[in-house]
């Protein structure tokens, strides 16, 4: 690990000022991802701004739903009564992630901002466009090691099947974000140019020509909180995570389902998938198809087929082309309690 400066701030304003002032400054939240990246020298910060003292850890009811502070711990959110009662999908997704120890450290903001787990990204001797981008520009970051995409033509069992580019096929690894995108969350950020709101589905981005950019947060911006609108999904929600061991492994495929059911008919539904794309992947075509239809396995299968349009495998991850639709059907059945 390299030497770095360390400052602790107590107000969002001070945090934003600190990060805007000098290049190479990073917010430090739970540190469960950033510190690992520093140890591997994938990220070499000049300065860390510790934001753990910011008053952003509250979870509170609002007129339209629930507001979760960016510094709330993953475990706190998962165990919160209001979350468990009204947003069980979020609670399930959080508890499916990482380990108890990590969830006790990890924050909501940090979870959204976590980097991909693509092994080439973590190893400076391996080619990776995300770590060592080709283009110059404001978001260039540090060029660390060779460019290229190690995963294309390499070990890509964990990689994306949707929205890839020739530059990068990494996936966003978060479980929590699958629930948040499904539940139509909004991200509240504050930055040097003021406050703004970002619909969750616009927060993360596809790699395109700029795989180094994971999301649309602008330089100097701080995630303040996440808003969840009230819904009618709490009786029929399910987060399915298919992984290589029963706990403490990233998703091969995950599916977040939330259904508003009335007498066997799907009034409304939200569907999102993890482990398939550079961003939490919302299945809008499948949702549109299911709306108003009876909750039958046949309909679930058709919805899954719709969801898979445009999917593409890269060799080792070809199995996801089958595992993904199977998982969608499985998760829908469980959420609809038809299983």
């Amino acid at each position: 690990m390299n030497p770095f400066q360390f400052t602790r701030v107590t107000t969002p304003k001070a945090a934003i000022t600190a990060i805007t002032k000098e290049n190479g400054t990073y917010f430090l939240a739970g540190g469960t991802n950033l510190i690992d990246l520093m140890k591997r020298e994938v990220i070499i910060p000049e300065r860390l701004v510790d934001i753990n003292k910011l008053p952003l850890a509250t979870i509170e009811k609002t007129a339209t739903g629930l507001r979760i502070g960016a510094m709330a711990k993953n475990s706190t959110v998962a165990d919160h009564e209001l979350v468990k009662k009204h947003f069980p999908l979020l609670s399930q997704a959080l508890n499916a992630g990482a380990s108890a120890q990590l969830r006790n450290m990890a924050t909501v903001g940090g979870n959204m901002m976590q980097r991909t787990r693509c092994p080439y990204f973590y190893d400076n001797s391996m080619p990776c466009n995300k770590r060592s981008p080709v283009q110059a520009g404001p978001d260039k970051g540090q060029a660390n090691g060779p460019t290229g995409c190690g995963a294309i033509g390499g070990i890509n069992r964990m990689h994306a099947i949707f929205g890839t580019s020739t530059k990068c096929i990494a996936v966003h690894p978060s479980d929590m974000c699958i629930a948040l995108v499904a539940l139509d969350a909004t991200v509240n950020v504050s930055g040097p140019k003021g406050d703004r709101q970002i619909p969750f589905s616009d927060f993360h981005r596809l790699p395109g020509d700029m795989p180094q950019k994971d999301n649309t947060l602008q330089p100097g911006e701080l995630i303040m909180s996440v808003d969840l609108p009230t819904n009618r999904f709490s009786d029929n929600s399910h987060y399915l995570k298919v992984r290589d061991r029963a706990s403490y492994a990233f998703a091969l495929i995950s599916v977040g389902v939330a259904i508003d059911m009335k007498r066997g008919t799907i009034q409304d539904v939200r569907l999102a998938m993890g482990g398939v794309a550079h961003k939490p992947w919302r299945l809008t075509a499948a949702e549109a198809f299911l709306k108003g239809k009876p909750a039958t396995e046949a309909n679930f299968k058709q919805a899954a087929a719709l969801a898979m349009q445009g999917a593409k495998g890269y060799g080792e991850n070809d199995f996801k082309l089958t595992l993904a639709p199977n998982s969608i059907v499985d998760a829908l059945k469980t959420a609809a309690k038809t299983a």
């Binding site: 787990r117 092994p119 080439y120 190893d123 001797s125 391996m126 390499g154 070990i155 290589d244 061991r245 029963a246 706990s247 403490y248 492994a249």
Partner: peptide
Amino acid sequence: FGRFVNNNLADYHVAVHAD
């Protein structure tokens, strides 16, 4: 490259309690 890509305990999966 002749190199490991999962040489850490997050990616090399030993069985955990839940298994």
